[in-house]
Computed example of a mutant assay.
Amino acid sequence: MPQELQQVFILHVDLSPPLEFGNTFSGDRRFIPITGGLVEDSSGHVVGKILNGGGDWNAVRADGVVHVLAKYTIQLEDGTLVNITNEGYGRASQATMKAVFGDDPASASMADEGRAWYTKTWPRFEVAPGKHDWLNKSCFVGNLLPPQKPNHVKIEIHQLL
């Protein structure tokens, strides 16, 4: 039986420039501070905001796989706080990752010899019991879209039905 997907959120995540650790045993490691953003529902209405203080600990491995591990907080319009851990994999060279954080991030999607942009995640939510605890009880997949403007990423979040 094929799985169905339903888009539930679009996350507009604002970033600060990355802190570069260099080439560690995990790959080219960087920390990307998350400084804020907005949460839209599937119809485009803003339903929350992303709070300052999270970050993405990401690394580009030697084989060109990017490991994404972002943790941050969402505050929904009713004040409910939601913890999100968004982990996944992408395919990019170090040159592409440098383009993501440069003056023309839209060029990043074409930086790897014409290969299409690919970054998928499996977001996990944590929220107190109440009207939003369906987030604790469902499985989700994320599609991190190719960057279009500096210091910003957009992630489509889909629920597996």
Rank of each mutant, 00 (worst) to 15 (best):
P2M: 07
P2Y: 06
Q3G: 02
L5Q: 03
Q6V: 12
Q6A: 12
Q7D: 01
Q7V: 03
V8R: 11
V8M: 11
L11H: 01
L11N: 02
H12V: 05
V13F: 01
V13E: 05
V13T: 09
V13N: 05
L15Q: 07
L15C: 03
S16H: 09
P17G: 11
P18K: 04
E20L: 11
E20R: 12
F21P: 00
G22V: 10
G22W: 12
T24K: 10
F25N: 07
S26T: 15
G27Y: 01
D28N: 15
R29L: 15
F31T: 10
G36Q: 04
G37L: 12
L38V: 11
V39K: 07
E40T: 05
S42M: 01
V47T: 12
G48Q: 08
K49L: 00
I50F: 01
I50Y: 02
N52I: 05
N52K: 15
G55E: 10
W57D: 15
W57M: 13
A59T: 13
A59Y: 08
V60W: 01
V60F: 01
R61Q: 14
R61L: 14
R61I: 07
G64H: 12
G64Q: 13
V68T: 14
A70H: 08
Y72D: 06
I74C: 00
Q75C: 04
D78M: 03
D78Y: 02
D78F: 03
G79H: 02
G79E: 00
L81I: 10
L81F: 14
I84Q: 02
T85K: 09
N86F: 05
N86I: 05
N86V: 06
G88W: 03
G88V: 07
Y89T: 14
G90H: 06
R91N: 11
A92D: 06
S93Q: 01
A95T: 12
A95N: 13
M97C: 12
M97T: 09
K98Q: 15
K98D: 15
K98N: 15
F101K: 01
G102Q: 10
G102P: 08
P105L: 05
A108Q: 07
S109H: 03
M110S: 13
A111I: 06
D112S: 11
D112H: 10
D112G: 08
R115A: 14
W117A: 08
W117R: 10
T119F: 06
W122C: 12
P123Y: 01
R124S: 04
E126C: 08
V127G: 04
K131W: 09
K131M: 14
H132K: 02
H132N: 10
H132D: 04
W134A: 04
L135S: 07
L135R: 02
L135E: 02
N136M: 11
G142D: 04
G142W: 02
N143S: 06
K149Y: 07
P150S: 11
N151E: 10
V153R: 10
K154W: 06
I155W: 00
H158W: 04
Q159S: 04
L161W: 01
